[in-house]
Amino acid sequence: MPEQRTKPLLTVWYNTRCPVCDAGINRQKRRLIEAVKAGRIEFRDINLEPAALAGSGASLEDIRRRLHATDADGRLLVGADVAIAVWLTTPGEGWLAMVFGNPVALPLTRFAYDRFADLLYAWNRRKGRW
């Protein structure tokens, strides 16, 4: 009987053309090697599948600007919420999710992430990384 692959608990979409994004995701992949091998988490390059999240209302440029992910139930996560979900999955990084994802800190975390993402997006555009 063929092996059935379960749907990942988290599928993260990111822009490999951004050196900062690519380095950050590669670091997480190394930390999550067993979860990736087991298919519990998946990291996908949006440049290879530019319309992948169009049905969720996310454009290619949206995903180049901020991390996007879908959870096992198909819910869309964006920006800081993706980082928090990845931290929750990463051994030894759950504390980051608790610190930055708690109800008091979360609005500030989202604000800071969005401002950093805006700056990074503008930098990548100036460098022609599309």
Rank of each mutant, 00 (worst) to 15 (best):
Y14A: 01
L96K: 12
R129E: 12
A112Q: 03
F116N: 10
A51V: 15
A23S: 08
R75I: 00
G92E: 08
A112T: 10
G94T: 09
A105V: 13
E42W: 02
G92I: 00
P2N: 07
W123G: 05
W87A: 07
D62M: 03
F43E: 08
T6G: 10
I25N: 00
N26K: 13
P8D: 03
A122F: 02
P19M: 09
I41P: 00
G94D: 07
S56C: 12
R125L: 12
R110H: 06
C21M: 09
I63T: 14
K127P: 02
E49K: 14
Q4E: 14
L32R: 07
G24V: 05
S56L: 15
T109Q: 03
N102L: 04
P91K: 04
L32C: 07
R129A: 10
P91Y: 04
A117F: 00
E93K: 14
A72P: 01
N15P: 05
A54W: 03
A85F: 01
F43H: 05
A23R: 12
A38D: 04
A97T: 06
W87S: 03
N26I: 01
M98F: 10
R44V: 12
V12M: 04
P103T: 06
D71F: 10
P50C: 04
A122Q: 14
A72C: 11
R31S: 02
L53K: 03
R66Q: 12
D45F: 05
K127E: 12
H68T: 09
D73Y: 07
V78R: 15
D73A: 13
V12S: 08
R30H: 04
W130L: 15
V82S: 04
D81V: 01
R30P: 01
A122E: 12
E49V: 14
R65D: 11
G57Q: 01
H68R: 14
V12H: 05
P50R: 04
A97M: 07
